[in-house]
């Protein structure tokens, strides 16, 4: 496939979107990533990355319903597209391939 430039952070966000399935929106992505990585992530970075991923067609979005939470603001949910999934597969294949090439030497 055509190469997709996906940074490390971008890949992590994309993975999180995929993992959260139907529940991926700004704050949930943020919390999930912070929990998994064990370090602080800034929301603005996530927003920027989501926009880029959407521009590249790796994710798509839809608005949720209005609730009394969030000052009456709708959530914007993100879902991974088939193209996005393909990109993840490609990355995964690339990495595992490389990983398996590591000689079986003891690093002890």
């Amino acid at each position: 496939m055509k190469e997709i430039s996906l940074g490390e952070f971008g890949e992590l966000v994309l993975l999180t979107v995929a993992a959260l399935h139907d529940e991926a929106y700004g704050v949930s992505i943020l919390e999930n990533m912070e929990e998994k990585q064990g370090k602080k992530v800034n929301i603005s970075a996530i927003h920027v990355t989501l926009k880029r991923l959407e521009d590249k067609g790796l994710v798509k979005s839809r608005f949720g319903g209005i609730t009394s939470e969030r000052g009456g603001r709708r959530k914007k949910f993100y879902m991974i597209t088939a193209y996005g999934k393909k990109a993840l597969d490609y990355q995964y294949a690339l990495r595992t391939g490389l990983y398996h090439q590591i000689p079986k030497i003891s690093f002890g």
Binding site: Y25, G26, V27, L30, I43, H47, K51, F63, E69, R70, G71, R73, R74, K75, K76
Partner: peptide, 15 residues
């Protein structure tokens, strides 16, 4: 972008 960003920021704030 405003609604999404504002919503997220407010949610974090409220948390």
């Amino acid at each position: 972008y405003l609604e999404e960003i504002e919503g997220n920021l407010i949610e974090i704030f409220e948390d």
